[in-house]
Amino acid sequence: MEPILEVRNLSISFTQYGRGTRQVLLPVIRDLSLAVAPGQVVAVVGSSGSGKSLLAHGILGILPYNSHMAGEISFLGQPLTPRRAAAVRGKEIVLVPQGVTYLDPLMKVGPQLRKGRRDQSARTASRAVLERYGLGADTEERYPFELSGGMARRVLIATAAAETPRLVIVDEPTPGLDARAARRVLGHFRELADGGAGVLLITHDLELALTIAHRVAVFYAGETVEEADAADFAAGRLRHPYTRALWDALPQNGFIPISGAQPGPGEVGEGCPFASRCPKGRPECMGPVAYRELDGGLVRCLYPEGGEQP
């Protein structure tokens, strides 16, 4: 099946001013690859502040002016050029953003859902989409500040589902929700996928991602280090030592911390960014490491678990 979205070797960097007028190039995403098929939920899991939200903005073509993007993005088999991104965003590609701050604070929910249209069919459609997410008709008459956290999240999903998107990009959907509300919200994304759309879920929460995702891409210090089936986690079929460390750090799996911290943008050399914390790190890990297929998944490691030596 042809993937809805395919991202190959994406990099995003920012030009910033250092001391005085000297410009510094800050690479935030260095090498990110993934694919989303129809009906599939693909999660990108990485720690907060690691720059994974930029992936969403890069696909939509809404990065700020001081950024540079390189690599290939194709949508439905065609390259996603800036012009094409502008044409499909909000229609075929929709974003469910992180928080209520993405809603217009001065506009009631109803008109925001209808995007300015006032005809009867738009009204019927907005009513229907609110109902689908368990929101009453009175929600249309509310301003964003009158919504609770969970309601706001559902309104954001409703704005996305009001169109018939092919690709839904979801950015950190669960912070601030309790476990039951979070599961319900994630269930809505699974429904969108079951309807045939591709869902790209960007999150820091591995555990919640595993509850709905089919595939999981693990993002570390600007790179995707592993892509695996969600089932590989519980089965212990993990490839990259970082993924293993993440899994072992779950409270129910041993709660084992490894030492050190993730390097920030600009602090990474040419080699594997995890090498300094890796139990299997060797001198040759400081050289280039290719992203390659292994056992039904992808891994960027010279000495992956369960893999023969290269």
Binding site: G46, S47, S48, P175, H204, L206, A245, L246, A249, L250, P251, F255, I256, P257, I258, S259, A261, Q262
Partner: peptide, 9 residues
Amino acid sequence: MLDLITQAQ
């Protein structure tokens, strides 16, 4: 808001 390894640390 932290990743799992930082949380465990």
